[in-house]
Amino acid sequence: MTTRRRLDQLDDSLSPQEAVLRWLAEAHEFPTLPDYVQSLKGQKPSVFPLYRLPEEMESSVRSSMRGEKPGRIYAAVRTAVRDAAFLVYLVTQTNGSVLTEQRANSLNYFLVAQGLKAFIKGSTPWEGVEQERWCGFAASLVSEVFTLHGAIAHIATTYFRGRTPLFPQTAGLLAQLVTVTAGTSESYHRSLALGLMGPKPKRRQPPPIDLNQVREAAAESALVRAQQMITLAQTEALSMTGEHDRGLDLVEARIL
C-alpha cells in the first residue's frame, strides 16, 4: 500500500471531532471568525465547512462500514454529519458570543477602571449613588467576563480536546479582558482594605460589594451559559438534518 493510499484511508476513518479539529486548525490561521468568513469570498460552496465536513463524514463512514446494511450506513452517516455540524455551530456560537459581548465588556471595564481611579484619587467620594452605581458596573463586569471565560473553557475541554474554539485574536482579547478584570477586582479589594477610598472598614464590616464572591458565582453561571451555547448549536445541527422537532425539544427543555 502506498503512503498516499494509507493517508487517504486514514482520512477516511476520521471521527467528527477529528475532522472538525483539523478544519479548526486551518481556520485558526485567520485572526477572527469574520476574517475567516471573508476568506471564503468567491470560493466554491464545497470549501464551506458546512458542505465540506458533512461530505468528509459521509465518505469516512461509508468507507469504514463497507459491506454493512444500507440502513445502518445511512443512520451512521446521519449521526456523523449531525455531530460534525454541531461542532461547527459550536465554534460559530462561541466566537459569535465573545465578539458580540467584547464591546460591551470593554466599555464596562473602562467604566469600572475610570470610576475606581476617581474614587482613589478622591475626585469622587466613595459613597451614595456613585458608589452604588460603581458596584453595579463592577459586579456586572466580573460576572459577565468570568461567566463567558468559564463557558468557553468548559466547551473547549468537553468538545475540542482542550483546544479553544475561539479564533486567535478573539481568544487573545478575552484573555486580556480576564486579566484586567481580575486586576481591577484585586485593586478594589486592596484599596478598600488599605483605606484608599475612605476610612478603613471596621473588621467585620463587609465591603459594599464582594467581587470575589461574584467571581465564584460566575463559575456556576458559566456552566449554564455553556449549556445554552451547546443547546443552540445542537438545535442548528438538528435543523440542518431536518430534525426540527427534536431541536425545539432541546430548546424547550434546556433554555425556556
Partner: peptide, 15 residues
C-alpha cells in the same frame, strides 16, 4: 444584542 454595549457607551460618555 447591541443593547448592553449601547447603554454602557452612553454611561461612559455621560461620566
Amino acid at each position: 444584542g447591541d443593547w448592553r454595549a449601547m447603554c454602557l457607551q452612553l454611561a461612559l460618555v455621560t461620566m
